[in-house]
Computed example of a mutant assay.
Amino acid sequence: MRLFCGYVAVDFENVPKPDSPDVMTIQLIVTHAGGAHKDDFLACSLLAHLHGVPIQRRDPTEEDLANPAVCVVDIGGVHDPELKNFDHHQFPRDAPPLCALSLVLQNMGLYDDALAFCAWLRPAEWLDTLGPNETAKLMEIPRAALGSLNSPLDMTLLNRFASHKELDTDSPVYQVMCMVGEDIVNYLRTLRQRLDYLKEHAQYWTIETDGEPIQALFLEQSEAIAADPSFGIHAFIENEGKEDEMQAMVYPDRRGDGYGLSRYNDSQRLDFSQIESHENVRFAHKRGFVAKVSTKDPTQLKELLRLAVVSEVG
């Protein structure tokens, strides 16, 4: 089965599953009843994807907590990865803002990459552990803006999840949860592979201008990245600590035989609408943030970048 995850096209049947020896031993996932939140929903989604076992929404028993074949999530007052207990509510008030999702990601060895490359994770942790007021302060947004970030997808999935006492593989909600868990896992694993690739193959260009030079990241065409050439570039630049230096990205166009030129972090030093009439330009967005060009010649690509430089940033 091949799906597009919103990040990169992944052939899920060919992505290796975790090699942990207990992957096939889990028999049950237990989480709390009542209202559902993003952290317990996503934690259970990851575990459902990994283990394919039923989810029961109830209080755990002492036997559940002592049984490593039962994952107890966001309830039970115990964090013990060896016994598959993933609750955070017993942590002291001044503990780092780790939620049940954080604990499951840590157990999977994916937390550090998720924190670095999934912008949604930290706010999810804050909301679940610190509450909306403190979260809004940390996000530097008005408290009322938090509600604007919710969508009908959030409300429907959480409400449907909360309405069940038990879900198994026949449930549409369970099936969607497995898709969500699968997408997160494969995004993080394929991203790590892409970052390693970019470390080896990405080039940094300096484009001389009448003023301060433009810095661009260039990625050469290759079958290895043909499915989604631009995937991971933003994360790579941030991971390399070059987010304050870079203005442009040049990467293969997956819809054509040339290259895409785009502003990094919407740098106002570039306006690609300035080159829309150039013979090598197939398309330039009227708002100037992206262009698609037919040339593959690095010299010509650098010249197009130079022509797109705004003489004075307003």
Score class of each variant (00 low, 15 high):
R2D: 08
R2K: 13
C5K: 03
C5L: 13
G6Y: 13
Y7F: 15
Y7M: 07
N14P: 00
K17T: 07
V23W: 05
M24F: 11
I26V: 12
Q27D: 13
Q27E: 15
I29E: 03
V30Y: 07
A36G: 07
A36N: 01
A36S: 14
H37W: 10
H37V: 07
F41W: 12
L42H: 07
A48Y: 11
L50Y: 10
H51L: 01
V53M: 01
P54N: 00
L65T: 11
D74M: 07
I75C: 00
I75G: 00
G77Q: 05
H79Y: 15
D80F: 04
D80V: 03
E82Y: 11
R93A: 11
R93P: 02
A95P: 14
S102V: 08
V104M: 00
M108S: 05
G109D: 07
D112R: 06
D113A: 15
D113R: 02
L115F: 10
A119L: 13
W120I: 06
L121D: 11
P123M: 00
E125K: 01
E125I: 04
E125P: 09
W126F: 12
W126H: 10
D128K: 01
T129P: 02
L130N: 07
N133D: 15
N133L: 13
L138G: 04
M139E: 15
M139H: 12
P142L: 15
R143K: 10
L146G: 05
L149N: 10
P152C: 04
L158W: 06
A162G: 11
S163V: 05
K165G: 14
E166C: 13
E166L: 10
D168F: 09
T169P: 04
T169N: 12
D170G: 13
S171C: 06
V173C: 02
Y174D: 08
Q175H: 11
M177I: 09
M179K: 10
G181T: 07
T190W: 02
Q193F: 06
R194K: 03
L198A: 01
E200Q: 14
H201S: 08
A202T: 03
A202R: 01
W205I: 03
D210Q: 14
L217T: 06
L217S: 02
Q221D: 09
Q221L: 05
Q221G: 08
Q221M: 06
S222L: 08
E223V: 08
A224D: 15
H234G: 05
E240P: 00
D244N: 12
G260R: 09
G260Y: 02
L261V: 06
S262W: 07
S262M: 14
R263G: 01
D266P: 03
R269K: 09
L270G: 02
D271A: 00
F272S: 00
H278L: 10
R282F: 09
A284C: 09
K286H: 07
R287E: 01
V290T: 04
K292T: 02
V293N: 07
V293S: 03
V293E: 12
V293R: 02
D297R: 09
L301T: 12
K302N: 05
V310G: 11
S311E: 15
E312S: 11
